[in-house]
Design a binder for these strands. Structure first.
Lengths: 187, 187
DNA sequence: CAAAACCTACCGATCGTTAGTTAGGGATTG
DNA sequence: CAATCCCTAACTAACGATCGGTAGGTTTTG
């Protein structure tokens, strides 16, 4: 666990934070999961704020790569918009977990500034990608793409939050269908 | 502070929980705010779980009254649908606070069962009212009213969450407008 | 006077964090 | 070649603070 210990910690912290939030991150629990002692985490991250910021940053870096890969692979912006909610769906399937950004938005007032910034970064990445894809798909006028992108992101986040409180992925699917039926998402 | 101490505690706990969540509720801080000592809270609530459940229950009881009053006062279902997001807006204006139900949905995995149930109650009240008003307004077919009501509730919750992470109520307004423009909410 | 409301003084657990130490591998140097 | 040095990555042990909660006494009040 020497060379990739930092990565192991990051991954474990992300999973925990998606289930219990930044406040639910415990050095002792996290260390136990990784197989080291709590104090050893300080060798890799100077503070909990640093760890939280690193987790959030990696989170939006990963989604940025994933979204761009989706667009390149399908080459179809409309198909991308149909697939977009599936990344949120996967979190729910994986232990009823939440988008890290949503959890941190809820916890916003409890977060160190550096963590707040990285949490916002996730939303920014999603909105920018959605706006681009919406324009490519010709779904909205370019001038309205940013606003529509934000609306889609916020609505999908809300759907995930609602489904989580029911521990029921089917509720998420149903909400996405309603978004499509009402015209918020292209059908 | 004798006869209404319980109510004072409930109100203070609600405000704190909307800003810092159930996990952010501290008996010591709460007591200090109310003007008594931490141990004295146990005279009114047997445990933190009981307090949390009482806060959440009162929360959806209050919104149920408020929504029905709105409908009775305006007598106009379409106007009600236009006004609906304003209750969420008010939380943001009041110290960038979140809907208690949204915060608890995020914290869901950390909550005692009794608190989870009451948190769900808030969503149920909102969805039931929205479904009723949507039908009255003739905005959707009765069969689709529940699904659409859930979609609106989830989307508005998500909008509040997004706006909170920007500490910017204008973002909330903009999102609601996008919901209206796209057809999710009646224009 | 009795009940309700509140108090002081704790308990054990957990929190993030710090100090100081150890084991081992790679590089430097006599 | 061998001894020395330094670095990484982990460790043990504890710190002060805070947490929810409890026991039992005191004050306020109908």
């Amino acid at each position: 666990m020497s060379t990739n210990a930092k990565e192991t910690i990051l991954a474990a912290a992300r999973k925990t934070a998606q289930a219990h939030g930044y406040g639910g991150l415990s050095y002792r629990d996290l260390a136990a999961e990784v197989g080291i002692k709590a104090a050893s985490i300080y060798h890799h991250f100077a503070s909990k704020a640093d760890l939280g910021a690193a987790v959030a940053r990696r989170y939006w870096e990963d989604i940025a790569v994933e979204l761009d890969a989706m667009l390149e692979k399908t080459g179809d912006p409309l198909e991308c918009l149909r697939l977009y909610p599936s990344t949120f769906r996967r979190s729910l399937e994986d232990g009823n977990r939440l988008c890290l950004c949503s959890f941190m938005s809820a916890e916003y007032a409890n977060l160190p500034e550096t963590v707040q910034r990285e949490a916002r970064g996730f939303a920014d990445v999603n909105v920018a990608w959605l706006a681009k894809v919406l324009v490519m798909a010709g779904a909205v006028k370019p001038k309205e793409s940013e606003a529509r992108a934000r609306a889609i992101f916020a609505a999908v986040s809300g759907a995930q939050l609602y489904a989580r409180s029911r521990s029921d992925v089917a509720q998420f699917d149903s909400l996405i269908e309603s978004y499509q039926a009402s015209g918020l998402l292209p059908a």
